[in-house]
Design a protein around this nucleic acid. Structure first.
Lengths: 185, 185
DNA sequence: CATGCAGTTCAAAACGACTTGAACTATAGG
DNA sequence: CCTATAGTTCAAGTCGTTTTGAACTGCATG
């Protein structure tokens, strides 16, 4: 956690503690990303890398954001898996460095697809099971079964809304996020 | 928690413990609603009331779902406030009874509007603050400011996506949910 | 105005999600 | 092969949220 010493002049601005404005921006992105159902610190790591615009080592991230070694490792693994952070081998250095991909929305889409749709599928399966059970019990009124069927519409509707959401975000937000790709430095 | 005794023949089916299929369906709705950012038990209470299709007392809900007295009171207060559960005075009885409104989506819209939009507004305010601070510091490179501006697009985009989502869910899903209003009992 | 039941409140307990940190594995250099 | 450093894993701890349950309020009745 401490005992980290940096003899590296290679990335000088990586060494200074985050400026106020930087910390504010990093936390704002963290909050947004948490809102989307991810971990706050996943957003913070991405934001740090994006703002610095240089590849940082895990140890630097650890220090800048005040996170633990293990935590940074896990966060980077997730971000890498989702394709929003790239792991690059630095030339003069034994350790990996990480840089931000610019399409953060990729992350949202990826995980929503993986996680949320399978969740909804599970819900629908449960509701179908409930309906089958109810139908096979003669003492259950028809109207109950009808209501169960309508509940399945809840799952359908949720899934449909999700799809719509992803689609529109891809079109609408996606082009916006494309802007992240280049800036006039 | 216990000690509840019901001399009421008025709602006989409210007295029997939940059937398997009923419990499955109730939990499925609970999970879905939790996915939308509410409490699981808010969804379970609504689902119970919807499936039974009779107005239940708080004590009955408590027993059916295995919740505490205080918890049921708070859950019903929220559901009532959101307009998805109605409190009705039963004729022969001293206590209130509760019945499900059919438009569950009302709940999602209400809370997303109240809670999520104000959250995004806050995020944007933070990012603007960060940008102001960065701009007023001459040692901060222009490119950093540009990146901060682009981050504000993240908030804009999220808000825009939310609005779109609400609008489409109102149109698309909303009509679906209208179906909940009547069934052929 | 005492009693009993319905309903509310809130401090504390239970719970779950996230993070930590120490032990471990992998890898590069001497 | 030995050592040092980077990176991973996971049991245990922390922290925020949800639930409980006991005390309390309100109200109707005898």
């Amino acid at each position: 956690m401490k005992g980290y010493l940096w003899t590296r002049a290679q990335a000088p601005e990586a060494a200074k503690p985050a400026a106020d404005w930087e910390a504010i921006a990093i936390d704002a992105v963290g909050n947004t990303i948490e809102f989307w159902g991810f971990k706050r610190n996943q957003g913070r790591v991405w934001a740090l890398l994006y703002l610095r615009d240089v590849a940082l080592t895990a140890a630097e991230i650890e220090r800048e954001l005040g996170l633990s070694k293990g935590g940074v490792s896990m966060l980077l693994r997730d971000l890498e898996r989702w394709g929003v952070v790239l792991r690059v081998r630095s030339p003069h250095d034994a350790s990996w460095r990480y840089k931000a991909e610019t399409d953060l929305l990729k992350m949202a889409r990826r995980v929503i697809e993986e996680r949320e749709f399978s969740f909804i599928a599970r819900v629908r399966a449960d509701l179908e099971e409930a309906r089958r059970l109810a139908e096979s019990d003669p003492s259950v009124a028809k109207s109950k079964v009808a209501r169960l069927e309508k509940m399945e519409l809840l799952a359908d509707a949720t899934e449909k809304a999700l799809r719509l959401f992803l689609k529109t975000s891809k079109l609408d937000v996606g082009t916006m996020f494309g802007v992240f790709g280049s800036d006039g430095d």
